[in-house]
Amino acid sequence: MIPALLLVSMAVFMIIHLIPGDPAKNIAGPNATDEQLAALTRRFGLDKPLPVQYVTWLGNALRGDMGYSFINKYPVNTLIAQRVPATIELAFSAAIVAVLISFPLGILSALHPGSIFDFVTTLFSALSFGVPAFWVGIMLILLFGLQLRLLPPSGRPKFGEQPVQHLKSLIMPACTLGIALAAKLTRYLRSSMLDVLDQDYVRTARAKGLRERVVTLRHVLRNTLIPVITILGLQTGDLLSGAIIVESVFAWPGVGRLTLQAIGWRDYSLLQADVLYIVLAFMLINLLTDLVYGLVDPRIRYA
């Protein structure tokens, strides 16, 4: 993992510096004098050769010091740490929403292929998959935020101060993200289950006289879970890296918007740390996914 992170850090550093754009010119604006531009370039340490900049950055990063934001001198670690709870909260809430929607829909439509329920589920998946998240978000805001006034249209009040408002503010962004993820999971679950339902051991289980619920939950669903967990793991990783659009629509203070802001300002130090932490989160999620495989299928554990 460490060599991979090192390689990633180098690649990220180089790619970020290759993107056209200059933080000094960006921040100084069109009326800046040459002296002002030079002063900002020096302040950001961008007057040094790229390899020197990388080695300096890496040395600091190994000590846990990811530097300061170019645009406000805020410690990068603090900026990211402030956003991480919101991101984790949103990602996992969305994953829970997705599981709650997709599992019943996927299982039932696989058990009754060709039925009206299956047709409606397929239609739901196709629509949810195709409709852009920002549209779903705006529609939810219009309905629940403006018309019914049931949920706050945006923001994230502190849980400690307003726990009910906090949870209410989570519902719409989690649903917006969760519905899109549910569409994917439902399709995967349905097709995986249909494959498994055709297997000999399922027929054998039924021939043994096992109840249908036991066949479905113990023999079919369990064997269906591996690809579904893979998808869920990858998608949760995606959610952690930033559901930028949903965060923008609901003014959710997550890592996605921070990343977008860092890209917009070419805030290299913030962007480097941001991307590196996202890669790390991906790796951890993948590791977690591998561990869950073992729980679901003991054969993997023993192998």
């Binding site: 978000g137 705006i138 805001i141 706050p152 249209p153 945006s154 923008s248 629509v249 609901f250 003014a251």
Partner: peptide, 18 residues
């Protein structure tokens, strides 16, 4: 002061009174 980047969401927030 609340940052609401999306213009439509901003407008709905005003109409909804938040």
């Amino acid at each position: 002061v609340k940052p609401i980047p999306d213009p439509q969401a901003r407008m709905v927030n005003l109409l909804a009174g938040s």
